[in-house]
């Protein structure tokens, strides 16, 4: 069963076509890598799927709801982690869990036990009452991810979740993604790191607003006669006419 289905999904800003007639499906429980150069339209496409941006034309269904007409139902069923850290840094770790848990309708009795469970998973217990602003970037990202899946959504959208952190932290972050996937959460993630692309079940590569390739990493490499996803990406991205922003 598909959790995400798009049909000619398009976004224009004036004459500029940021996202051009996307057609793809993501199955339940999949880890889907959404790759592309800067300015290829990844974030714009993801924002439409999350209900933050209205498509110019075309449609998409996320978790069974139409993103145009059932936006609020879509929002209930997804988690989202934006590219820029956007939790409240003047609240503590536990308070952020409480706030977003409450907003997503997690019963108030369950919030403390789920918070402890999450902190356990992150190995974060000592930081429960730390103000978020004093956490290092890698920890902030893990926290954002945990908050995005705290209400146990069907699908979680991650926009460059590991930007700017060291390889060890990235590795640890992907372990969290696998754990979430094992619990049945579909993961839709953009990334610039091609080693991360190898971890995905399937990956798409966007060039100039369109999806140029979509398959499992193994088959993509085979089709392009490449040794790594990095090579596949370079092959495709070379065709881009649009300049990165």
């Amino acid at each position: 069963m598909n959790v995400i289905e798009t049909e000619r999904l398009t976004k224009r800003f004036g004459d500029f076509v940021a996202v051009d007639r996307l057609d793809f499906q993501v199955a339940r429980g999949e880890i889907f890598g959404f790759l592309g150069a800067n300015g290829a339209g990844k974030t714009t496409a993801m924002r439409m799927l999350c209900g933050l941006s209205v498509p110019t034309s075309g449609t998409a269904r996320v978790a069974g709801f139409d993103i145009g007409r059932q936006t609020e139902s879509v929002k209930k069923s997804i988690g989202y982690m934006s590219q820029k850290f956007s939790l409240y840094d003047d609240l503590t770790v536990a308070e952020n869990f409480r706030l977003f848990g409450g907003i997503y309708g997690v019963p108030s009795r369950e919030i403390p036990s789920r918070t402890d469970e999450m902190l356990e998973l992150l190995d974060f217990r000592s930081e429960k009452n730390t103000f978020v602003k004093s956490l290092p970037l890698g920890w902030k990202q893990k926290l954002s991810f945990s908050i995005a899946i705290f209400h146990r959504p069907g699908v979680v959208f991650l926009d460059e979740p590991t930007g700017g952190v060291d390889p060890v932290s990235r590795r640890r972050f992907w372990e969290l993604i696998y754990e979430a996937s094992d619990r049945g959460i579909t993961v839709f993630a953009t990334t610039h790191y091609m080693d991360e692309a190898e971890y995905c079940h399937r990956a798409s590569i966007m060039v100039d607003g369109r999806i140029e390739a979509l398959d499992t990493p193994a088959r993509l490499k085979q089709a392009h006669g490449a040794a790594s996803m990095d090579e596949v990406f370079r092959n495709l991205a070379r065709k881009a006419t649009r300049r990165a922003d």
Partner: peptide, 13 residues
């Protein structure tokens, strides 16, 4: 400016 509104806008508030 801080970007926190985006995290609110993506919720069903």
């Amino acid at each position: 400016e801080k970007g926190t509104i985006e995290q609110i806008n993506v919720t069903p508030v």
